[in-house]
Design a protein around this nucleic acid. Structure first.
Lengths: 113, 113
DNA sequence: ATTTTACTTAGGTATATGGCTAAGTATGAT
DNA sequence: ATCATACTTAGCCATATACCTAAGTAAAAT
């Protein structure tokens, strides 16, 4: 495989693991420390931390060391690239390119206001 | 890892490979045979066919043998589960559950008409 | 009938992934 | 100052992934 995977590669690959999706679901409800996030998962901490690393490498979360804890949160617009790709393909398949164009237009307006 | 991965696991994992995303992009424009799909990819055929298998296992495409060719097409609503998951998490993060509810309502209406 | 085409099967390799334990390090609490 | 907590680093292991070649098989073309 390529030495440097694209954002979409890392993003979708990160989403392909149930442990990591659970982490994201948890973070969608607000920030948390590594051990808070780890608690529901029957897994050694170092194994768990690898999942956080992959989520961060994929740009889905960010984390910051605070004292001896590491606080994680969902990255702003974490899912936008993935959603855009999916929406675009659906639109092409539906033969409704216009729908995707509208979607992007709204997105851009939203961002600039 | 689990012996039987969930649909979302298989789906997102399948999307995490650039070769497979290219296949989906091609199929969004219409059905094609295995060798037509393989043509742009510098890869031995058996290697390429493995990618088709994974896409099919993930429910993203379907294929049918026609004579000596295998014709592939995008599965209807291929991306819906993935998009729904992403949309739901975004909505929760935005604190706008209502938005996701509207989205699902529209989706359901669309499907039943 | 023979050959070509379009896969398909079988089996092999290198690297990546997802898990582990053991032994750090740094910070907050006592 | 000591101890407990919250990671972090290092190193190991089994399985999965993404590729390969070689040798089928079955349908279409000649």
């Amino acid at each position: 495989m390529a030495k440097y995977d694209s954002t979409l590669d890392l993003c979708f690959a990160a989403l392909g693991d149930p442990t990591r999706r659970m982490i994201l679901q948890r973070l969608a409800r607000g920030e948390a420390t590594a051990s808070e996030l780890a608690e529901p998962h029957a897994m050694a901490l170092p194994s768990f931390m690898e999942h956080l690393k992959k989520l961060e490498a994929a740009g889905l979360i960010s984390s910051e060391k605070k004292g001896r804890t590491r606080v994680c949160e969902l990255a702003p617009d974490a899912f936008t690239p993935a959603k855009n790709w999916l929406t675009e393909q659906s639109a092409i398949w539906d033969g409704r390119l216009d729908q995707f164009d509208d979607y992007v237009t709204n997105l851009t307006k939203e961002r600039n206001k």
